[in-house]
Amino acid sequence: MSNLQSETIDQSRRRFLGAAAGAGAAVAGTAAAPAWGGSTLMDTMGSFFQNHYQRMSDEEIADAIGRIERRAKRRYDVDIICRDQPPQEDVVFGYALNISKCQGYRDCVSACVRENNLDRGSQMEYIRVLEMEEGSRNLEHSEHYYDPDTVPVEGKYYLPVQCMQCDNPPCVKACPVEATWMEPDGIVVVDYDWCIGCRYCMTACPYQARHFNWREPQIPSEDINRNTNYLGNRPRPRGVVEKCHFCTQRTREGRQPACQEACPTGARIFGNLLDPSSEIRYVLANKKVFRLKEELGTEPKFWYFTD
C-alpha cells in the first residue's frame, strides 16, 4: 500500500517536473547561446529523471529514444535510428566457435568495432582473440596483442573470447543497481543510462568480457553505424560498462551478428538453441564441444568446438 502511494507521488512529481522543464525549455529557446551543453533543458531534465529500462512505459521509452537520437545528432552530427527491438518468442541464442578453423585474422574484431559504435583507438573491443600455445589451454599463457606479419603462426592456435552470455551470469548478480540483466532470449544486456560505473560486474566476470568507457566513445561521424538498438549499440555515455550483446540490433530481426558475418573462415556458428534443426544444435549434438571455465558454473551459452 505504501509502495503504491509512493509510486503515485513519484509519478505526479515527475509530471510536475516535466511540465516545469517544458516551461524552462520555452524560456531557454529564446536565448541565443546553447545552454546545458547544447541540450535543451527538457532533455537534460528528461535524462536526469529517466527510469530503469524495465520500469519505463512505452511512452517513456519513446521519449528516451528521442533524447538518444538528439544527443547523437549533437555529439556526432549523425541522424541515427534508435529502436527498442524486443526479443523474439521461443528463441534463446547460442554461439559455437570452431577453433580448428579460426586463423586469428581478427576480422570479427574490426567488424564488431564498426557495427557496435565502439570507441576507436582505445582498448574497447568486445572480442579478444587469444593466441594460444598449441596443445595447451592455459589462458594465462595466452597473448592477445599478437601482431605478426601473417597469421596463423606455426605452433599456435587462436581462441576468440567475448561475452559468453552466461545462463547463470555472475555479472548480473554483482550489479548493485540492477542495471544489467538477462533478457528472455538469453542475452545479458546493460541499461547504459542506469549503470553507475562501479565496475563490480567487470571484476565478477571470469571472462573479462565487460569493458568500461573511460571516455565518451570517439568515432568519426562517417563511421557511425546508424542502425542502433536501445539495449545494444546505441552511442554510450562516458563512465558506463558495456559488453557484447550478440548484436541485438541485428539478431533480433533474424540477421547474423556482425562477427559471424565478417568471419572469412566460417568458424562462427550462431543460432537458436530451442530450434532442434538449427546449425548450433547440430554442432552441439555432433561435435566435440567445450566451454571456457565451465567449472565455475556460469553456464556459458558460447561453445568452442573442433572439426
Binding site: 585474422y105 574484431v109 582505445s122 596483442y145 601482431d147 605478426p148 606479419d149 573511460w214 571516455r215
Partner: peptide, 13 residues
Amino acid sequence: PRAPEGPPGIRAG
C-alpha cells in the same frame, strides 16, 4: 597465411 587486423590499442592515457 595472411596479415591479421591490428592488435587492440592501448587504453587512452
